[in-house]
Design a protein around this nucleic acid. Structure first.
Length: 246
DNA sequence: TTCCAGGCAATAC
DNA sequence: GTATTGCATGGA
């Protein structure tokens, strides 16, 4: 898929992005008093160079909820929704499920700012049920679900599954999003219509880094793309990665 | 006003 | 398997 001449480029691009933007501190947490860097669209809760997250089961489920809420919307909206929700209910599967079932309108009003409220309410109930069952079946708080099982939950697609596995469970799964496609299509490494799994496989085969660097790479891609790949024509002002264009 | 945002599922070929 | 469309809201 990639000429051997460019074999190391995914690592070189990572190095360049890291040098340019430094450590991103994903995944952000609402109750974490982290730094507030001058990051595009960032508000708070980031923890650069500290990969020891999530620190407890509530934070883990916060990542899982956030992964669904952030589908096709902006992070500031998600942060608002999480703060709204946090005043109403604990971030654990059983509490979320019961609150959503018994207080539908307050629940929807809390997350309304992220859009797609009806769908996302259903999705959040589904994922809550999934983790309730997972814990009951395996009787282990910290059991890690399989990617296949996650994908069987209505509302969890490829990207959300990888987001949950990478940032909540710290599994070495590369997360591909629309920004990833834009940057690496523009640079010439992938094609516009390549499938999610083929792009994921491309990164997992050609980028050598541990799970923390998998997290870092995705965050750096988002940061870079927000600056140069949000307005059409995408990438034309990207001087930072221009040297890696093929 | 139009376009875009850290997608997904259902449907149609 | 791949392409298209509806889903909701807020901000630039």
């Amino acid at each position: 898929m990639i000429n051997s001449k460019y074999k190391n480029n995914l690592n070189l691009i990572f190095d360049k992005l890291l040098k340019t933007y430094s450590y991103q501190g994903w995944w952000p947490f609402i109750d974490y008093d982290g730094v507030n860097p001058t990051k595009t669209g960032a508000i708070s809760g980031y923890h650069p160079k500290d990969y020891d997250f999530p620190k407890n089961s509530n934070q883990k489920f916060e990542v899982i909820i956030g992964s669904i809420l952030t589908q096709n919307t902006t992070w500031p909206s998600v942060e608002q929704a999480l703060n709204n929700l946090n005043k109403l209910v604990d971030f654990d599967p059983l509490s979320i499920l019961e609150f959503a079932n018994n207080n539908e309108e307050p629940f929807k009003n809390a997350i309304r700012c992220v859009g797609f409220v009806n769908q996302k309410t259903e999705y959040l109930k589904n994922i809550s049920n999934f983790y309730i069952d997972l814990k009951e079946d395996l009787d282990k708080e910290d059991e890690i679900p399989s990617r296949k099982d996650l994908l069987a939950v209505k509302g969890i697609g490829n990207e959300t599954a990888d987001s949950i596995l990478l940032f909540a469970h710290k599994q070495k799964e590369f997360k591909v999003d629309s920004y990833t496609k834009r940057i690496f299509t523009y640079l010439g490494y992938i094609k516009e219509n390549d499938s999610y799994m083929s792009i994921k496989n491309f990164f997992e085969t050609n980028f050598s880094g541990d799970v923390n660097m998998f997290q870092e790479y995705h965050a750096l891609i988002v940061e870079h793309a927000k600056r140069y790949y949000s307005k059409k024509p995408y990438g034309v002002n990207d001087k930072i990665l221009n040297e890696f264009k093929i």
